[in-house]
Design a protein around this nucleic acid. Structure first.
Lengths: 224, 224
DNA sequence: TTTTAATAAAGAAATATTTCTTTATTAAGA
DNA sequence: TCTTAATAAAGAAATATTTCTTTATTAAAA
């Protein structure tokens, strides 16, 4: 009477999760074209991913397609948005208002994806108490005070590498649950703190390696 | 008499390549502290990666450590730089000089990592023929002309999603070998064109998923 | 109505990647 | 010199992920 599925390591693969926003983004363009259905082979063709992988990815979300037709675009979009939590808004503070920080502040997709940046911090006196894209900027010394006023779950670090750990410590002390680290240097944090590292350098490493080695990669798919 | 190693699928794992810049960055800080040796457990401790994975990663590069001591920091750095091609400079053109584009232009690590952005392109008349960080900016219509003057291997796309494919087509036609796509939308390209997609959205997807699910991830390690 | 072809589903197989285990090495201390 | 403990190396095992194969379904065409 045992349920074999419960025995499985059970969990959606991380690479699948990383592919989901790509599917979502693509499906929006399909929806705009007023296409009611979209098939895995069609998605595969555009995204250069194996079609059975797409079917498998969707199956993790318990979405069922219809034989010979494909998936209902609007249902697929809705389920992706629910899974990715786009309907649940999380607040975030961003530290480091340089070019990349400003780019993130202006990145319009975050709003639709359920993250709202509610304050920015820096040490540059020229920008403190000004606004970028309607976002108030404060001195980093006010971080604790501001988070007490309006708690946030996410701290975004966009400072130079040599200052990243210090900011991370401040964020952890202030009670953020997740840190999104763009500094390019690793951070130490307790196990209960979620850390997501986004580093541009690994992208360049891949490009240069592919340019140098003219061998095919182990994995055939392009994304991720 | 057969060499079993040659039979193997043979290839360095992609996740390993993506970890290498992280090791490199960390090792530079070790070098600055004038530590001649660094052990895998020490690196593991800082980077929150399994120590045997680090040893395995280095073994792909044929670096040998010394029992009870570790690796020679300077040798490790040198081998990483050679493998990653930091000593071979590749030229790149960047298209889309918004905030993110400007941030990339100013990203100082690219120089050390062997990529030099030699021209920028946009359609905004206000910035055309000006300079950002000493980089000349041209109208996108001059792309072909400029690449004929000074060929580049890499095209960096930082334009909005709905214009990305058009720019990719132009780049391919102009002879770039690799496209670094920051547009967040997938690109179609012939198989011989290297495509590297860097999308911020998958990072947010991971964070929101981890915030929502309070289960541990399948993989224990933090980076990547 | 029947046949055909396109598709998804399910699960098996193949492959890639990580993690564990054992062994060998060696620096440091007894 | 001998012993101990820390470490890397090598390869086995475990796990994760992708890809393949088979089967079932169904829309469209005959």
């Amino acid at each position: 009477m045992k349920n074999t599925k419960d025995n499985k390591a059970s969990g959606i693969p991380v690479p699948t999760i990383r592919r989901l926003p790509l599917y979502h983004s693509f499906l929006l363009t399909i929806k705009n074209k007023e296409r009611k259905y979209i098939s895995a082979p069609d998605i595969a063709n555009e995204l250069q991913i194996d079609p059975t992988q797409i079917i498998k990815d969707f199956s993790y979300l318990n979405v069922k397609g219809k034989t010979k037709v494909g998936y209902v675009t609007s249902v697929l979009i809705k389920i992706l948005e629910e899974f990715l939590g786009y309907h649940i808004s999380r607040k975030a503070f961003i530290v480091g208002i340089g070019n990349l920080g400003s780019a993130l502040i202006k990145y319009h997709r975050f709003h639709n994806e359920g993250m709202e940046i509610t304050a920015g911090f820096d040490i540059n006196p020229e920008i403190i108490n000004t606004k970028t894209n309607n976002l108030k900027l404060f001195h980093i010394d006010q971080f604790q005070e501001k988070i007490n006023e309006t708690p946030v779950d996410i701290g975004i670090i966009v400072v130079p590498a040599d200052q990243a750990q210090k900011i991370a410590d401040l964020m952890i002390k202030s009670g953020v649950k997740a840190i999104w680290n763009f500094s390019g240097t690793p951070l130490s944090a307790p196990d209960n703190i979620i850390i997501e590292n986004t580093s541009i350098d690994s992208g360049l490493a891949m490009i240069k390696w592919k340019l140098h080695e003219n061998k095919p990669l182990i994995y055939k798919n392009r994304m991720l």
